[in-house]
């Protein structure tokens, strides 16, 4: 089929937007491994900046990973049961609870963080602990786990499957572990990728919640952007991309897989 002018205009515009999104990423990646950004690529490639950043900021990466995994564990543990209850109950109360649980997404992180500091900033050593940041991340990420699992549960004939399992003699733990969980694995996977990605990149809350002892990756990045030379900032950003891009790609893969299975 011959393509009309509409196709080429559309393609051109789409390519332009892709360039807008991707070129700065490439520029940043290249700058992170360039010996001297002012001179340009001719100055040669180097891992010097990466090594230097890791020496100074490696701790932020490890802390962010620790917080992300802890956030994941907590959201899995409390999010999946909550999604299950919300999927099984159709009443007004259940809808109100659902509404409440997803509310933290709609409120700017800086407001939630300020509230957390006001409420718990003076409680023991909590303020200086990474658990303080964890609390914020859990509140913010829980809605994503909840929605992701809930969407899959609602697409299933959950009530029918559970009744069938009961008719076969299955107790509640047997049917929850043997029938419900295996059938929401897609939603759990998508939710988990989202939670880890969001927690690794969370800045709006964490900037207020962190202390010098609990500096996370994005907070370190913001510091680097204002204080360090471009090559270092870019190398730091590169480390972040190395963590986050595989997660985002996995998320795209999970979404397309879910779409295929849904058909």
């Amino acid at each position: 089929m011959r393509r009309g002018i509409g196709f080429w205009t559309g393609l051109g515009f789409t390519l332009l937007i892709s360039a807008f999104l991707i070129l700065p990423v490439l520029a940043s990646v290249i700058a992170g491994v360039t010996a001297n950004q002012f001179v340009g690529l001719s100055s040669g490639l180097t891992t010097r900046w990466l090594v230097e950043v890791w020496a100074n900021y490696g701790g932020t990466v490890l802390l962010s990973l620790r917080i992300a995994l802890a956030t994941l564990a907590v959201t899995l543990l409390i999010g999946i049961p909550a999604a299950y209850v919300l999927a099984r109950h159709a009443g007004v109360t259940a809808r109100l609870v659902e509404e409440a649980l997803v509310m933290p997404v709609a409120v700017p992180g800086i407001a939630t963080a300020l509230g957390l500091i006001l409420a718990y900033g003076a409680v023991g050593d909590l303020r200086a602990s990474w658990l303080f940041i964890l609390a914020g991340h859990v509140v913010f990420c829980l809605p994503f786990m909840l929605r992701s699992v809930l969407a899959v549960l609602l697409a299933l004939d959950l009530k029918g499957l559970e009744e069938a399992a009961r008719a076969c003699g299955a107790s509640w733990p047997q049917r929850f572990l043997g029938v419900v969980l295996p059938n929401v694995s897609g939603g759990v996977l998508a939710g988990s990728l989202m939670v880890v990605t969001l927690s690794l990149g969370e800045f709006n809350m964490t900037l207020l919640l962190h202390t010098p002892f609990t500096r996370t990756l994005p907070v370190g990045l913001a510091d680097a952007y204002t204080a360090l030379r471009t090559e270092m900032a870019s190398a730091y950003t590169l480390i972040f991309f190395v963590l986050i891009v595989p997660l985002l790609s996995a998320m795209q893969w999970a979404a397309s897989r879910a779409e295929r299975l849904g058909r």
């Binding site: 049961p81 300020l114 509230g115 006001l118 409420a119």
Partner: peptide, 20 residues
């Protein structure tokens, strides 16, 4: 089953927002 999620919501969102 839903109590833990609600507890987190109350303690780390609703109470802080009330304080705010």
């Amino acid at each position: 089953l839903i109590a833990p999620a609600l507890a987190v919501f109350l303690a780390f969102f609703l109470v802080p927002l009330g304080q705010l």
